[in-house]
Amino acid sequence: MVFSFFTRKAIDMIEFTNVDKVYPNKVKALENINLKIEKGEFVAVIGLSGAGKSTLIRCINRMHDITSGSLVVDGTNVGKLKGKEIRNFRKKIGMIFQSFNLITRTTVIKNVLVSFVPQLSFWRKMTGIFSKEHKLQALTALDQVGILEKAYIRVDQLSGGQQQRVALARTLAQNPTILLADEPIASLDPVTSKQVMDDFKRINQEMDMTVLLNIHHVEVALEYADRIIGVREGQIVYDGSANEVTDEVLDYIYKGKIGEVKQEMYKEGAYV
């Protein structure tokens, strides 16, 4: 234990240096972002809708381009990548979305197998036949999120929480170094939200995977994340431990609307 404490040196996974992001319609989405995230951290990004949470996360795997500054992810300078390099880089980064983004008319395992598609040989791509190793990896990923027995069932027969777990398994099968999640529980009810968040926490701890998620529900963020990043109007206005977040801090991040945000969540019934 002591030994591991000493060897566990902080490794920078994500480093934003003076990053700006301006959309083509001149809207400034991110402004002077400086941020360092280390391996194994569990980070939640909070803020009002439109504050730039989603943009921040999507820059990391180059779903959005940054306008200026530098962004280094796992030793790769993301801004400099081109074409095929971007696709190869993305393979290392898993991403989960609010709307699950699954092919509902086919089986669970086929959805998970999608994550191996970029590695397939030409004839496997044409026929859609996957190797046994890939199938085993996909099943193992399903086992990690606890829905192994659903492997051969069509996705449209699963509940919302189970579908988000399929998406999670698909991401795990990629064997990523970083897990990004864009509002992963926004369309789930409180009970399944908790299950999915527990999955994230477990993956973070057991596999020492960096997890970065943006989330609408402040209470959930405070409960699960080690570190909170508050975004307001494209700038980072809070960056620190989750236990140090005070009501004043929240009030500042949410421009004094924290009461409304909480009330809205009560109404949605998504309050955990």
């Binding site: 085993l136 099943l139 192994l148 051969y152």
Partner: peptide, 14 residues
């Protein structure tokens, strides 16, 4: 019957 590396089995319909 498919056997996972961790010993669990799952039956795959043909």
């Amino acid at each position: 019957q498919v056997v996972l590396p961790n010993g669990k089995t799952v039956s795959e319909k043909r």
